[in-house]
């Protein structure tokens, strides 16, 4: 083998590696570019204080996104995450004693019971999603679209246009306090990310998730209970959303209808922009972390620079589109390579 041949082989090997890692590299490069851009554009961006802001700001989205990563890895989607978060946040406030000026006919119970009822509520909604998708056979897109309405309906019914402010102490501690200057809501996010990562990477259940998303038929033939895995992913997602809703309500200081509506797009975007495939089977919590940071930095950075408010919406959309194009493009390259290999 000549030197030229060796170097050509090495170059093609490294380009192959780069291409195979494109899904992970592209979002990370986007993040670095955004960090550099905003650091130059605004002196207040690259500060410790603002890093803490970004971490806090991605926490609610992040907890939702952990659950959503499980569902998307299965090749499904959950459009009810924000709605379930909202409903669960409202349920926990509904069962908490409110100030006299809050005009809601609520039922105050002990804090632990309120939290238990809220957890039961989000688990129940997740089970309905799971039942509809796996037993009845409704596509997850439609099933969770219906659940989005149901969650909004529960929220509306409980608060009846009013706003509740109080949540149990345990929820306030998790959502709206600091430990040594570090926001506890960010600690909750880190715990969720860690548990999510360990489950997906080091457990049999995690591998089954990837198998179901990668090739459902193959998984089924290998003896994996695909419906159970799908159902479990949807329930996990609903519980993550519910907990995100509870700590979110504590963090923002109020529980009200439509409060987390904007988080649906953010949560899906965080997962997909990070490089997890919308078609399932590829990606993971690591990707979700990068996606969360891209969105967090983008949202926060745009607040730091003086820019036309109308233009901001467009910029967010364009960056999201670019990331999605990369995602699908990389997926296509892989499919072609696979076909060529076969």
């Amino acid at each position: 083998m000549t030197f030229q041949q060796t170097s050509t082989a090495r170059a093609s090997k490294s380009s192959l590696f780069l291409r195979s890692q494109m899904r992970n590299i592209a979002p990370f490069a986007t993040l670095i570019l955004l960090l550099i851009f905003f650091s130059i554009a605004s002196p207040s961006f690259a500060t410790i204080d603002n890093a803490s802001n970004i971490l806090t700001q991605i926490s609610v989205t992040g907890i939702m996104a952990v659950g959503l990563t499980f569902v998307i890895l299965c090749g499904e989607i959950d459009l009810s995450v924000a709605s379930i978060a909202n409903a669960t946040g409202i349920v926990v406030a509904y069962f908490t004693l409110q100030e006299s000026y809050v005009n809601i006919a609520n039922i105050p119970v002990a804090g632990w019971l309120a939290v238990a009822l809220a957890l039961a509520a989000c688990t129940g909604l997740g089970l309905v999603n799971a039942f509809g998708t796996t037993v009845i056979g409704i596509p997850s897109f439609i099933m969770t679209l219906a659940m989005m309405q149901i969650g909004a309906g529960i929220s509306a019914l409980l608060v009846r246009g009013q706003i509740a402010y109080n949540v149990p102490d345990i929820v306030s501690t998790l959502g709206a306090s600091n430990v040594g200057g570090f926001p506890t809501i960010a600690l909750v996010l880190l715990a969720f990310l860690l548990v999510g990562h360990v489950t997906l990477t080091y457990t049999r259940f995690g591998r089954y998730i990837y198998m179901v998303g990668g090739n459902r038929e193959a998984a089924e033939y290998s003896g994996v209970n695909v419906k159970l895995i799908l159902g479990a992913a949807l329930v996990i997602c609903a519980v993550c959303s519910g907990i995100a809703g509870m700590v979110g309500v504590a963090h923002f200081g109020s529980a009200q209808q439509n409060e987390f509506d904007g988080y649906l797009l953010d949560a899906i975007a965080a997962v997909v922009v990070g490089g997890t495939s919308l078609f399932g089977g590829r990606g993971g919590i690591g990707n979700t972390i990068v996606g969360l940071c891209v969105l967090g930095v983008l949202n926060n950075g745009l607040d730091h620079i003086q820019i036309d408010s109308f233009l901001k919406i467009l910029i967010r959309g364009l960056i999201l589109l670019a990331a999605l194009i990369v995602n699908v493009y990389v997926q296509n390259i892989r499919s072609v390579e696979r076909a060529e290999g076969a």
Binding site: G248, F252, G253
Partner: peptide
């Protein structure tokens, strides 16, 4: 939006 107001 209260979440946006908090972020700002």
């Amino acid at each position: 939006d209260v979440t946006k107001a908090s972020r700002l």
